[in-house]
Structure formats: C-alpha cells, structure tokens
C-alpha cells in the first residue's frame, strides 16, 4: 500500500465515520464537533488531491468561520444547557433505511459510469498545473480572467475566459449577504411564551 493510499484511507474513514456520527448525535454541539472532524478530514483529502489552496480555504472559511458561526448560533438559541431536541426513533430508523437505499443507488450509478480518463494532451496542458499541488498562481490568474493552462492546450487563437465575472458577482453577493444577515438578525420584539 502506497503512502498516499494509506493517508487517503485514514482521512476517508475519518470523514465518513464522523459524517455518520453527525447524523446520530443528539445534542447540537456534539454534532458541531463531529462536523469539524468531518470537514477537517475533508480538507486533508483536498490536500491529498493536490488542491492546497482549496484545502486551506476549506479550513479557514468553513471550519474556522462558518462552524464557529454555527456554534455561536447554538449558544444563542439554547434555552437550557445541552439543548436536546430528540428525533423519534422511528424517524431515525426510517431515515437510515431511506439513506441506505439512496447510498446504494448512488454507488450503483457511480460504478456504472466509465469516467473519461484525461487525455495525453490535457495532462500535458491542464493537469500539469494541478499535479504539483501549487495551484495558487493558476487559480489567481483564472480569477483575474486569464487561463494559461487552457490557452496552451487548445493551441488556437481563442483565449479562454477565466472567472473574473463570477468572482465579481460572488464579491457583490457576499456584501449583499453581509448587509442582509445583519438586517435579519438585529434585535426585535420577543414573542411571549405561548401556552
């Protein structure tokens, strides 16, 4: 077994097991804990797949940002210590069965597909950039609207457009979300306890 396969097995197992643990945990903070493990090992899988920048972004934005926000939300909405809103066992069993069935369908269809292998040409042009794991500069260039990896592979006179427009749209979207979330979450009247 090669080193890469060994590391892959370890992190894939950690990802899958903690994802299952998220489903079966009852308190929200434990769910958050298992979610951290799941997302952290996913980022390790990204590092293994030569996507250094995506892995680091996953750690910084997802684990360090989004999940802290979620745990913060848990603390703000808990009416007592270790808030537990239990799902009835029947629902868990039903959910588990449907999930297993769904997983089976997904696997069956995954194995049925013959994925297109990279051609020699595209390996030479595109994947070479990815292979080293140092995708920082190609990624930055593609966000600026230039795609050196694609342009040298098509060897025509057509320049491949990069991701400048989506990048700008996402930036504006983030700003809108920032304002919108601040507006939605501001303190308002509190409902009186019903019953």
């Amino acid at each position: 077994m090669s080193g890469e396969s060994f590391l892959f097995t370890v992190f894939a197992a950690a990802t899958c097991l903690s994802a299952v643990a998220v489903v079966f945990s009852q308190t929200v903070v434990r769910m958050a804990f298992w979610l951290i493990i799941a997302l952290g090992s996913t980022s390790a899988l990204f590092f293994l797949a030569n996507a250094d920048f995506v892995g680091a972004a996953q750690l910084l934005i997802y684990v360090g940002g989004t999940l802290v926000l979620l745990v913060f939300g848990v603390m703000l909405t808990a009416s007592g210590p270790y808030l537990k809103i239990a799902t009835s066992p029947g629902e868990i069993v039903l959910g588990g069965l449907v999930g297993l069935l769904f997983l089976f369908v997904v696997f069956a269809s995954l194995n049925g597909v013959e994925w297109r292998k990279p051609t020699a040409h595209s390996i030479e042009a595109g994947s070479q950039v990815v292979a080293a794991g140092n995708t920082l500069r190609p990624l930055g260039l593609s966000f600026l609207g230039s795609r050196p990896d694609k342009d040298s592979s098509t060897d025509g006179n057509v320049l491949t457009p990069g991701y400048l427009l989506p990048f700008e749209i996402v930036s504006v979207h983030l700003l809108v979300v920032l304002i919108g979330a601040a507006y939605l979450a501001r303190a308002k009247r509190r409902a009186v306890q019903p019953n």
């Binding site: 996953q58 926000l69 297109r116 390996i123 950039v129 990815v130 190609p138």
Partner: peptide, 28 residues
C-alpha cells in the same frame, strides 16, 4: 485531479465554499 476538468474543478469548489459561508450566515 483524475479527469481533464483540471483547474476548473478547484475554482468551482472555491465558489461553493464561499457561497456556503454566505448561505450559513443568512440561514443563521
């Protein structure tokens, strides 16, 4: 990594991460 999607896959996953952060903020 394994098909000729190349860099595009990483770019899309970055967009997904960013949009997920935005989604989490609004949903929260």
């Amino acid at each position: 990594k394994y098909t000729d999607l190349g860099l595009d896959g990483q770019v899309i996953s970055l967009f997904v991460i960013v949009l997920a952060a935005a989604e989490a903020a609004v949903a929260l």
